[in-house]
């Protein structure tokens, strides 16, 4: 039981990180009609910049600095490349994001090399013990910060004009334009929000005992099943999908290690993703598309 709780806690903490990344994917997909394959590299950039600034600045300034850099990068990509390609069709845009992903990855390797770096988390290696279960501070911080960020997002989308405009744009682009909502600005806004989420995810992905290395970008791929399972256009779905993937990975590593060459927990999220695609293609929480009367 203790082991189950221990793994469960770690699974939830990891799942929250996936949720933040998955949310970024969903917000960009909804807000600008693109699936951005470069999002994982944005996560990596976030972690590397925090790490580079940490020795020179207080942690919170390093974090803010990374947000500035990563958001600027996202806006640059969005404005210079994607907005120009939008009328060329979805395939072109998605392929372009793949290209951007390769470029940003190469850039990271050029600046920081392939080597393993230190941790970039906001809290150290401390732990608290509750009834035999060890709760690492990094895990607690991950969960608390994610919940705060999710609540802030909810308020933003439900209570602010920009949030409303973003949802209107996601719902019907031409109608949004007709209301005088500047679609281009909404695309940029959705990318900027995704970039902020990427940086928040990155510091927890690089929290002790995890360290910063270029493979951090690959983790974004693990968030893709989370996106599909939850539903491409559902914010709640992204969170639930992220938690499912995180729990499967950590609990699976604990309880399924003897089957399938120890790789089962790596494959299972993708199996679940395919299952969802077959049975419920719009995801657990996605909208089937409300019919217009």
């Amino acid at each position: 039981m203790t082991l189950f709780l221990q793994l469960g806690f770690q699974g939830i903490a990891l799942g929250m990180v996936y949720a933040l990344i998955a949310l970024g994917f969903v917000i960009m997909t909804k807000g600008s009609n693109t699936f951005n394959f470069a999002h994982g590299e944005f996560v990596a950039v976030g972690a590397y910049v925090v790490l580079a600034l940490m020795p020179h600045l207080p942690y919170w300034l390093a974090f803010l600095g990374s947000i500035v850099v990563t958001v600027a990068l996202a806006l640059l990509v969005e404005a210079t490349l994607l907005r120009r390609l939008l009328d060329k069709g979805l395939t072109t845009v998605v392929l372009a994001t793949l290209g951007v992903s390769i470029m940003v990855h190469a850039l990271i390797l050029m600046v920081w090399g392939v080597g393993t770096k230190g941790s970039a988390g906001p809290v150290g290696s401390g732990t608290v013990e509750v009834g035999g279960v060890v709760l690492p501070l990094s895990g607690i911080a991950t969960i608390v910060a994610s919940v705060i960020v999710l609540a802030a997002l909810l308020v933003f989308f439900r209570r602010t004009p920009y949030g409303l405009a973003l949802r209107a744009t996601a719902s019907h682009q031409e109608a949004a334009l007709a209301q005088g909502i500047d679609i281009g600005r909404m695309f940029a806004l959705s990318w900027a929000i995704a970039a902020v989420l990427a940086v928040v995810a990155s510091i927890f992905l690089a929290s002790f005992p995890r360290v910063v290395s270029p493979s951090i970008a690959l983790v974004a791929l693990a968030a893709i099943p989370a996106v599909v399972i939850g539903g491409m256009d559902s914010l709640i779905g992204a969170v639930v999908g992220g938690l499912i993937v995180g729990l499967i990975q950590v609990l699976g590593a604990g309880y399924l290690a003897d089957y399938g060459g120890g790789k089962l927990h790596e494959v299972l999220p993708y199996v679940l993703m395919l299952l969802v695609l077959v049975v419920r293609p719009y995801g657990l929480f996605g909208s089937r598309g409300i019919e217009r009367v």
Partner: peptide, 15 residues
Amino acid sequence: PTFALTDKDFTAQVS
């Protein structure tokens, strides 16, 4: 214990 190359949490292996 073994780990998948994409694993980001090692609680299960360490346990």
